[in-house]
Each structure stands twice: as C-alpha cells, then as structure tokens.
Amino acid sequence: MEQTILEIRDLVKKYEDETILNGLNLQIRRGEVVVVLGPSGCGKSTLLRCMNALESIQGGQISLEGETVEKSSKNITMIRQKIGMVFQSYELFPHKTILENITLAPVHVQKRSLSDVEEEALALLKRVGLSGKENAYPRQLSGGQKQRAAIVRALCMHPEIMLFDEVTAALDPEMVREVLDVILELANEGMTMVIVTHEMQFARAVADRVLFIEGGQIVEESDPESFFTNPSTQRAKAFLQTFEFHKEQKKDS
C-alpha cells in the first residue's frame, strides 16, 4: 500500500532577491526514507524547513495528507504535530529536564495526561539508551545524548513523518554512531523520514530513495545503490568525489 503522504509541487522559495528553491517537485510515500544530499547552500535545509512551515514560500504548494502546509494558515499548529523535526543544534529547552522537555508538548498541545506521556517517554528513553537521564538537564548531557533525547521528544508527539536536518553534523565522531543507529532503527520500523545528511555510508544504508539537490533543483533522483555506485549526472559524480581522498605521489625533487 503505497500512498503519498507528503506532496510538494512547484515549490519556490526566495530569500530577499535570491531564489533558493526553484520549482521543486517531490512526492513522499508512507514508510519511505528519503535522503537529501547536496553541496552547502543548495537548499536542502531550506527544503526541510519549508516542509515544516518554518519558512514562508513564494510559490507552489506543500500538502501533508491532503492538507496544505503553510506558515500563515490557521491550523498550522495541528499540522505541525504530525511532522517531527530534529535540528542540528538539538534545541532542547535548557531550562527544563529531559523528561519535561519530552512531555511539554504532548501535554499542552495534544492534551494528553501527564502520567501516560511520562510512561511513554521513559520507555522511549530506554530504547535509545538514555535510562536514568530523565531528570538531568540538557547541559549535563553529551551531544550524542542530547540528540537522542531530541529524537525522543519529536517521537512522543506521534508524528506521521520525521525530518532530520544534519543531525550529526555538530557531533564528535564517537557520538555520531549512536544517533545514526537510532535513526536506522526508526527506519526499520517503518517511519516515514526525510533526512539531510553528509554521512554517505549511513545515507546508503538507510535510504529508500536518494535526492541530489543543487542550485535549488533536484538534479538526480534514484535508489541508493545506483546513486552511489554509478551516478548518472556529472554534477552528482563531482559531488561524490569531494568525499573521496586519494593518496597522491609526492613530487620528487
């Protein structure tokens, strides 16, 4: 059963005079994991932010399960509950404990009971390996722990789709793995996800579909194996090469 959950049509996003996204089209199916790759400034983060209506758009339309996603629409808070987003800088609320961070929105926005949400939160924290940290403050956690907590916070809202914006880019290398493992597990459970990342091997392992964006347009779109072993466009080839290092012969005098 492959229904489209998120549809983007002719998306145009401008910032002052600069066009960042130029007529982008995309359809995401339920349960699909889409990885978005591309050089810096190509618009990948902007695309994610538009999906969550954190940016206003100048053209085109985004719809989630048939409902229009737009920054100024009256029921945007309802739509945002269905979209979970995890940021590169974690953005946990520093003045609240981990548990409070997680339960804040479900209780006040979805009006669920605190005890139910706490139970769920504790179970999720256990799954990501953060048992015992529920009463700690964000500043007491490492980067990797904070990011896992941020993922749990987003999950507790029971979203239909999760967006990950370069979530391991700010982490020390040892901590990258623990976060990526969590995301892999979510993928295996069938969560619909859009992931912006620079971790190529992870991208290859987790993606159902790879999008290569450059200059505000989708330049290439294919399954991960094809993309990484044999990219069809020159620009994709050039991009992938920037991640490879070859030992060069030193010039002899």
Binding site: R80, Q81, F87, F93, L104, A105, H108, V109, Q110, M157
Partner: peptide
C-alpha cells in the same frame, strides 16, 4: 530564534511558546 522554531515544530502555538519556552 531556533529555540522558538523548535518549540513551534512540536506544534505549540505562539502563546504556548512564549509561556513555556
């Protein structure tokens, strides 16, 4: 601002974001 955005992305409205975050 990104704290504000992170709260908004959880579905809170303006008053809730102001009050809790």
């Amino acid at each position: 601002k990104i704290q504000y955005e992170s709260a908004m992305s959880l579905g809170m409205n303006n008053v809730q974001v102001f009050r809790y975050v």
